[in-house]
Computed example of a mutant assay.
Amino acid sequence: MDAEHCPLCGKPNRCSIAAGRSDEPCWCFEAQIDPAALQRLTPEQRDQACLCPACAGAVAAVKGEERD
Score class of each variant (00 low, 15 high):
residue 41 L to Y: 02
residue 36 A to Q: 11
residue 64 G to Q: 09
residue 57 G to C: 03
residue 23 D to F: 08
residue 14 R to W: 04
residue 62 V to H: 08
residue 68 D to M: 12
residue 23 D to R: 03
residue 50 C to Q: 04
residue 60 A to I: 04
residue 39 Q to K: 06
residue 58 A to R: 08
residue 66 E to A: 14
residue 12 P to S: 03
residue 17 I to T: 14
residue 32 Q to P: 00
residue 66 E to M: 10
residue 48 Q to I: 06
residue 42 T to N: 05
residue 65 E to V: 07
residue 2 D to G: 05
residue 25 P to K: 13
residue 18 A to Y: 02
residue 68 D to G: 15
residue 48 Q to F: 03
residue 15 C to T: 04
residue 18 A to W: 04
residue 50 C to S: 04
residue 27 W to V: 14
residue 65 E to W: 11
residue 30 E to W: 05
residue 44 E to Q: 15
residue 7 P to S: 01
residue 37 A to R: 12
residue 18 A to S: 15
residue 44 E to N: 11
residue 4 E to I: 07
residue 25 P to M: 10
residue 49 A to G: 08
residue 44 E to T: 13
residue 44 E to R: 15
residue 58 A to T: 11
residue 61 A to P: 04
residue 55 C to K: 09
residue 56 A to Y: 00
residue 34 D to G: 02
residue 54 A to G: 00
residue 54 A to K: 01
residue 31 A to N: 06
residue 64 G to H: 09
residue 25 P to R: 13
residue 53 P to M: 06
residue 27 W to L: 11
residue 12 P to M: 04
residue 7 P to I: 00
residue 53 P to N: 00
residue 49 A to N: 07
residue 45 Q to L: 09
residue 35 P to Q: 09
residue 40 R to V: 10
residue 14 R to Y: 08
residue 37 A to C: 08
residue 5 H to C: 05
residue 7 P to N: 03
residue 18 A to V: 11
residue 38 L to N: 07
residue 17 I to N: 13
residue 22 S to R: 11
residue 15 C to P: 04
residue 60 A to N: 14
residue 68 D to Q: 15
residue 23 D to M: 02
residue 47 D to S: 07
residue 44 E to L: 15
residue 10 G to S: 14
residue 27 W to E: 12
residue 3 A to F: 00
residue 21 R to D: 15
residue 49 A to I: 08
residue 38 L to F: 05
residue 25 P to I: 09
residue 26 C to M: 05
residue 43 P to A: 11
residue 31 A to W: 01
residue 7 P to T: 01
residue 51 L to A: 08
residue 61 A to I: 07
residue 9 C to S: 15
residue 46 R to I: 11
residue 38 L to V: 07
residue 53 P to C: 06
residue 63 K to Q: 13
residue 63 K to G: 06
residue 46 R to T: 08
residue 67 R to D: 10
residue 37 A to F: 12
residue 20 G to P: 05
residue 16 S to A: 13
residue 38 L to C: 08
residue 49 A to R: 04
residue 23 D to C: 02
residue 17 I to E: 12
residue 4 E to F: 00
residue 33 I to R: 01
residue 62 V to R: 09
residue 49 A to W: 02
residue 48 Q to N: 09
residue 63 K to C: 08
residue 31 A to R: 01
residue 58 A to G: 09
residue 66 E to C: 08
residue 49 A to L: 07
residue 51 L to C: 06
residue 61 A to K: 02
residue 17 I to C: 10
residue 38 L to A: 02
residue 6 C to N: 10
residue 35 P to V: 10
residue 33 I to V: 12
residue 56 A to N: 00
residue 57 G to S: 02
residue 60 A to H: 09
residue 39 Q to S: 08
residue 41 L to C: 11
residue 20 G to Q: 04
residue 42 T to G: 09
residue 10 G to L: 15
residue 15 C to A: 10
residue 33 I to A: 01
residue 7 P to H: 02
residue 31 A to M: 02
residue 28 C to D: 00
residue 15 C to E: 03
residue 31 A to P: 01
residue 65 E to L: 13
residue 50 C to G: 05
residue 51 L to D: 07
residue 21 R to M: 15
residue 32 Q to T: 14
residue 43 P to H: 13
residue 4 E to Y: 01
residue 10 G to W: 14
residue 67 R to P: 05
residue 45 Q to A: 14
residue 9 C to I: 11
residue 57 G to V: 03
residue 58 A to V: 09
residue 53 P to V: 03
residue 49 A to S: 12
residue 11 K to G: 04
residue 18 A to H: 09
residue 21 R to I: 10
residue 24 E to C: 03
residue 8 L to V: 14
residue 66 E to F: 02
residue 55 C to Y: 05
residue 46 R to L: 12
